[in-house]
């Protein structure tokens, strides 16, 4: 009974982290049809930015604790804004209209470049900015000790997911975006400035990526290569949920999170296969993912 409860808690926490990582990826794919391999690097940039600044802030006792949290979020968003703008304005906008697969490779090249750029800026030594994580303390939920920071992540992830969904479904801008997702050419013909939408969405997606990194940074040790490790996870979640769907990413994250937690508790031997197993299974039954749309075949 205890472990079933633990599976639910652990699964939810892991799922909320997965959703944070995957949200930016699915937004960018949904609108721009770019499967962004560099998304993991955005995550790592956010983590590095947060860890280096927050670490400096707390180690030197610059100000109050709550301001440290704001600083963490702030620097992630600024880093995302800068990186997103540079990449979209400086490179991607010249590539629109190219083959979808070619776009994947472009982002693969970006990944290689960003990995080494991060190494040049931050070196290879781990960054350790544990204060935001440690300061929050822990709670006991029915005998299970859980970090409050992790519970906060669940909250943030819920708010973010809901916000994104409302934005897409309930605002004018969201409607326009959905029009672009549905049919780019028709949207363009109706007078939508698709290019501006692309810039907006790419920067938003990048900021979601850096935010996920910044939120994760206090709980881990920030090291080179951490971005590469999350990218396949994020892909799996997005593919399971259906590419480009926010609610799909949420359900995919929950599915992966819960199955993984169950594996860890009941069958640690299979932990390594769970994610790919779930992905293969879902694709075998629903080739377009849980919430993916079936595209009409054009002759």
């Amino acid at each position: 009974m205890m472990s079933l409860f633990a599976v639910l808690i652990d699964g939810t926490i892991y799922a909320s982290w997965l959703f944070l990582v995957a949200a930016g990826l699915t937004v960018i794919y949904g609108v721009m049809r770019i499967l962004n391999m560099a998304h993991g690097s955005f995550y790592a940039i956010g983590a590095y930015a947060a860890a280096s600044l927050v670490g400096w802030y707390f180690n030197n006792g610059v100000g109050p604790v709550w301001a440290g949290y704001l600083l963490m979020l702030g620097c992630a968003l600024v880093a995302g804004l800068i990186v997103g703008l540079i990449i979209e304005r400086g490179l991607l906008r010249f590539m629109y209209g190219r083959d979808e697969v070619l776009m994947v490779i472009i982002t693969y090249a970006l990944l290689l470049i960003l990995e080494d750029t991060m190494k040049m800026i931050w070196g290879v030594n781990p960054y350790f900015a544990y204060q935001p994580y440690a300061e929050m303390g822990r709670s006991a939920l029915a005998g299970l000790k859980v970090s409050n920071y992790d519970l906060m992540l669940v909250g943030i992830s819920l708010v973010l997911g809901l916000g994104l969904w409302l934005w897409l479904e309930r605002t004018h801008q969201g409607k326009v975006l959905r029009a672009v997702i549905h049919d780019r050419e028709v949207a363009m013909a109706m007078g939508v400035n698709v290019r501006r939408m692309f810039t907006l969405v790419f920067v938003l997606g990048t900021m979601l990526g850096t935010l996920a990194g910044a939120l994760t940074a206090p709980a881990i040790s920030v090291v080179p290569g951490m971005g590469v490790e999350v990218i396949v996870l994020a892909f799996a979640v997005v593919v399971i949920g259906g590419m480009g769907s926010i609610e799909g990413a949420a359900v995919g994250a929950l599915l992966v999170g819960l199955s993984r937690a169950a594996a860890v508790h009941y069958a640690p031997e299979f932990e390594l296969f769970v994610i790919y197993g779930v992905m293969a299974l879902v694709l075998a039954v629903r080739p377009q993912g849980l919430f993916g749309r079936v595209l009409a075949r054009k002759i």
Partner: peptide
């Protein structure tokens, strides 16, 4: 208890729970 998470996973929430119990 014996846990074997993937190398470079970074998040050990579930493993820590499983060991704790």
């Amino acid at each position: 208890e014996s846990q074997m998470p993937k190398v470079f996973q970074g998040q050990y929430g579930a493993e820590i729970s499983a060991i704790s119990v």
